[in-house]
Structure formats: structure tokens, C-alpha cells
Design a protein around this nucleic acid. Structure first.
Lengths: 225, 225
DNA sequence: GAGGACCATGACTGATCCTTCACGGCTTGT
DNA sequence: ACAAGCCGTGAAGGATCAGTCATGGTCCTC
């Protein structure tokens, strides 16, 4: 669940990032309207928390430009209690308007409410190869139409590689993403799990076509065999 | 555009009725939870404005019973500033929570926001498997043409899985949806209830074909055996 | 107040998964 | 050719997770 936090106050950004991370959100942050709009197009967050009073743009303008192409829930955070501002934001397309100071619990509840009724816009993110397909939404892998059973760790690694299909993912990055920051030297694990993934997915596990090793650098998910 | 105003204060009822009428709404009013629920079923309002502190029923209960069959936007109006109350209402299914005193303009803007994103209600889908069918609209399960009796909790879990048929649903998500945010570690419950569901629905409960466990990941409703 | 339905909770057993190690092949540089 | 890394493979112990059964509690009905 990805959330985009837009605020020009570094303190707030930090506090929000910590709080939201702890609740299991992936957090993007932006300090101005332009980078907010860019990040929104790149990462497609499921919720946007928008502070008013950005340096480069009116809040209403950010809302309108987001609404130009996206239905993502927007929750406005603001210190201004002006009723007119609330009405303008809500009528521009914001979903909710919370005035500072607010409790984190309340904000989280409002985020859940917004997510709950969000249009399930989903484009089906499925990564296909010549031999199997990875359904990132359903969290499952099909090979010849049959489901392949993966363990949590196996899936975690495969998902990471598939989301970066065609690109090299470094060993450090995999270890960090899957096992956390304290396992960056356990390249052992990668060898074991990559072997298991190949055994389950590759036509000829001894000569991988899709899960490619780049010696000393990392691994790469290749779509075309 | 019909709106249902629920409040036990005659003054407020009158004021709201006048204000909303002037904006072109058709207004129903109820002074307690029971008549609110009855009016909601009879007139199918497009928005519900719900005051807390009704004489006969907790606000959360009204929300839950409405949500049992309706997706109508619910905006809670309350003099209580307690954060816990807000969280409970929002997590029970309320769309917004406005604290008194509030400006009429703000309320109207929030109503417009709620109406805007209200989904035109979907047709009741039925999820079929080789052994039974789940009627999400009628909230019941048929097996060999006969109704299977499910307890509320069993149904809640089955409904969640069936709505996401084919997709993996994590344990956390089920626990959060069914028991609330404070039960995310009670994986015990899932084991017990999944066993009960299998006993009632699976042809061979010891070897489930439709309610699939993925160890460490979650559960999956599988349509095809 | 007796009974039944439903829920919460704990204990036990079996299954699954993770970690770790050992060994051998392959590549690279000297 | 040899040594040193790096990688792939298989297997074993221990940790974690799931299925099952049993128990006590609460609420509602009769």
C-alpha cells in the first residue's frame, strides 16, 4: 500500500514517514507540487496526503491536476481553518480535509476509509515470460496454466525481480528488501533461493533463461527467454 | 437527491431540513436509530447524516447495520471530539466525521464529495465453485442446492475471500477486516474458522480444494477445484 | 435456569519453511 | 596450471506455521 505525502516541512515529512512506515505503508514524499505530481504519475500511490501552502503551487491546483487523470483518494492536511478553503478543496476533488493539529489515529482511520471506497482501478500487473507468468496482484505464479507453489521468501524475491523486469537488481538490494538491513553479506541465501525459484520455474534449471545471474553484481528477471 | 438526517434534537432537525431543502435535497429525518434504519431501507437515500448520541442505539451500531446491506455514504456529525470515537466510526464504515459546530457550507461540500465518489451499486455477484456457490448479494451459501448455515464470523471471512476470488488474501488483512486493527497476531482464530468453513463446504475437508492455505502468506479462494 | 449457538483461547501434533553447512563446478587472474 | 572467489546444489536441524481438539465464557431462547 503506497502513500504519497506532500508537505514542505521536513519535520512533518519525517514524522509522517516514520508513522506510516510503522503501519506498513510504503511512503513517497514530496516537498512541492511539481515533484508531487511527478511522483504520483511514476509510483501510482493508493492515497495522497496533501498539505496546503506549498511553495510553488496552490493546493487546489495540485488537486485539479491530479484529478485530471487519477481517481486516487486525496486527503488534504491544513492548518487553515477557513471554511472557504475547505469547500474549494473538496469541490476540486479532494476526498477529505483534516485540520492541524490532528491525531495520527484519526488520520489513519480516514486513510482507511478513503482506501476502502477507492475505485478498484487496478490494471492487472502480470509479468509474462515464455515459460511462466507472475501475477503481482493475485500474488501467484502460473506455469503451463498450473499454479506454482512458492514460499513467502521465494515470492518476495520473485516479486522484487519481476517488478524490475529487465533491470539488474543488486544482491544488496534483494537482501535488504527481503531480510532487512542486517543481512547484506548473506549472499548465501540468495544462491539457495534463486536455485529453488529456478527449480520451480525454469524449463532447464541448470541453464536459466529468465532468472539470470550477473556474477558479483546481482540478478535480473528476463522476460524473453 | 435524497438525504436522511438522523438526530434526536428537534431544533437541529428543523434547521437541517430547511437548509438542505433550500439546496434542492429531498429530506428524510429520524430521531433514533431504529427509525433511521427503517427509513433507509424504505427510501434508499443517497446520503446519510448521522448524529451520535441517539437515544436507542450506539452510533457505531447504526453504521454497522446500515453497512450490512448498503454502501450509502454516511457522514457522522458529532459534538464529541474524542479521537477514539472517530476511529471507531470510520472503521465501522462511516465515510466522514464532522465535529460540531460546523459550517453549513463545509457540510454541503463534504456531502458533495461523498456523493461524487459513491459508486452506483453493483449487481449482486455470485461466486461459484465446483462444490458450492456463494451469493454475495443474498449473503448465503448453497451446496448441492441446499443452504449451508454459516455463523456471522464464518460468513464474514468467506465473503472476504470470495470477493477476492483467485487472489491471495493475507492473514493480516483478514484479521483486520473481521476482528479489527488490534487482532493482527491472533492467527489462531483463522485456523479455527477456516477449519469450520472447510468442514461445512469442502468435499474433503482434510484436503481442501477451494479454501487454500499458503503457509506464511495467507489464504486463497479458488474457484476451480 | 437449562440448553444451544457462537466465540475466544490454549495445547498438542504434524507439516512447512528458514537457516546453515558442505561440497563441487565454473570463472578469473596470476 | 593453480589458487581464489563466486556460484549452484543438496541435505539436515531447528524454528515457525497450520490443523485439530478441547475448554470455558457469553449471549439468546425457551
Amino acid at each position: 500500500m503506497r502513500v504519497l505525502v506532500v508537505d514542505d516541512d521536513v519535520q512533518i515529512i519525517r514524522a509522517m514517514r516514520i508513522n506510516l512506515r510503522a503501519r506498513g505503508y510504503d511512503v513517497d514524499t514530496a516537498a512541492d507540487g511539481a515533484s508531487a505530481l511527478r511522483l504520483a504519475t511514476e509510483h501510482l500511490p493508493q492515497v495522497v496526503l496533501l498539505d496546503l501552502g506549498l511553495p510553488d503551487m496552490e493546493g487546489v491546483e495540485v488537486i485539479q491536476r491530479l484529478r485530471g487523470w487519477s481517481q486516487v483518494p486525496i486527503i488534504v492536511l491544513s492548518a487553515r481553518h477557513s471554511a472557504g478553503e475547505k469547500v474549494r478543496c473538496l469541490d476540486s476533488g479532494a476526498d477529505d480535509y483534516v485540520t492541524k493539529p490532528f491525531g495520527m489515529d484519526e488520520l489513519l482511520a480516514r486513510m482507511r476509509a478513503a482506501e476502502r471506497r477507492a475505485v478498484p482501478l487496478e490494471e492487472a500487473p502480470v509479468v509474462r515470460t515464455g515459460s511462466f507468468e507472475v501475477d503481482l496482484g493475485a500474488k501467484r505464479v502460473l506455469r503451463n496454466g498450473e499454479e506454482v507453489r512458492l514460499t513467502p521468501t521465494e515470492w518476495h524475491i520473485l516479486e522484487l525481480l519481476a517488478r524490475n523486469a529487465g533491470q539488474l537488481v543488486s544482491q544488496r538490494q534483494i537482501l535488504h528488501d527481503v531480510w532487512g538491513p542486517n543481512y547484506q553479506n548473506e549472499t548465501n541465501y540468495l544462491r539457495v533461493y534463486l536455485a529453488q525459484l529456478r527449480r520451480k520455474l525454469e524449463p532447464d534449471p541448470a541453464h536459466p533463461r529468465y532468472l539470470i545471474t550477473e556474477a558479483g553484481r546481482g540478478y535480473r528477471f528476463e522476460r524473453e527467454g
